[in-house]
């Protein structure tokens, strides 16, 4: 008979996660080697919530009966997982070899400049976050940038603003520069 304390913990854990994740865990844990499905479960949590928060990992620990330290240990080992909420639009820029050779570095600089954030950060309005990927397998079309699930091929620094525009990006800075240019043209 499981203790009352444990039952309470279990109920709390179930509440901390979306129902879909809970049933995913239950399904996976009924198979052989249940603990081996930890990474799949973490993928599921991140897919649904966008990141792995402390409370989510604790809930996974309770539901899968794996020590919390191990859950965080495993999660932190893999680059794919992130621990802070991402922006509404997740930008992932490939910095694999082909993209690097084709100038992805300059695209990244442009992204950082336009959004005024660094890799791993989210803009204040929570609209965008930047992450870097290591090759998404579209090297022939490098440099490659992914926004949410859409893959953009042959991205250039000049086209970044336009792509971001599709996701509601408006840069006062960009507007300023264009305004200046027009002004000086007019002045001639």
């Amino acid at each position: 008979m499981k203790s009352e304390f444990f039952q309470k913990e279990l109920a709390r854990a179930k509440e901390a996660l979306p129902g879909e994740v809970v049933s995913f865990i239950e399904e996976r844990c009924s198979k052989s080697h249940p603990e081996s499905h930890l990474i799949a479960v973490l993928h599921k949590v991140q897919e649904k919530l966008g990141y792995l928060g402390k409370e989510h990992m604790n809930a996974v620990s309770v539901l899968m009966q794996i020590p919390a330290a191990k859950v965080t240990g495993v999660a932190s080992f893999y680059h794919f997982f992130n621990f802070t909420p991402r922006g509404k639009n997740r930008i992932s820029l490939c910095l694999g070899t082909a993209c690097f050779v084709k100038g992805a570095g300059k695209v990244l600089d442009k992204l950082k400049e336009l959004l005024a954030i660094d890799v791993g950060q989210t803009t204040q309005d929570r609209l965008f976050s930047i992450d870097v990927a290591r090759c998404v397998g579209a090297c022939a079309l490098a440099p490659v940038m992914i926004v949410n699930d859409k893959v953009y091929a042959e991205v250039k620094p000049e086209t970044v603003a336009q792509i971001l525009g599709e996701y509601g990006f408006q840069s006062s800075k960009v507007a300023q520069i264009t305004a200046k240019t027009t002004a000086s043209k007019a002045g001639k």
Binding site: S36, L42, H79, F80, R134
Partner: peptide
């Protein structure tokens, strides 16, 4: 079984650890 973005997990013994649900 899905990887999670760790290059070293391509190495066979690390890959096995990863399938087992451990740090690779």
């Amino acid at each position: 079984r899905l990887g999670a973005g760790a290059f070293v997990c391509g190495e066979e013994t690390a890959l096995i650890r990863s399938i087992e649900g451990e740090r690779g």
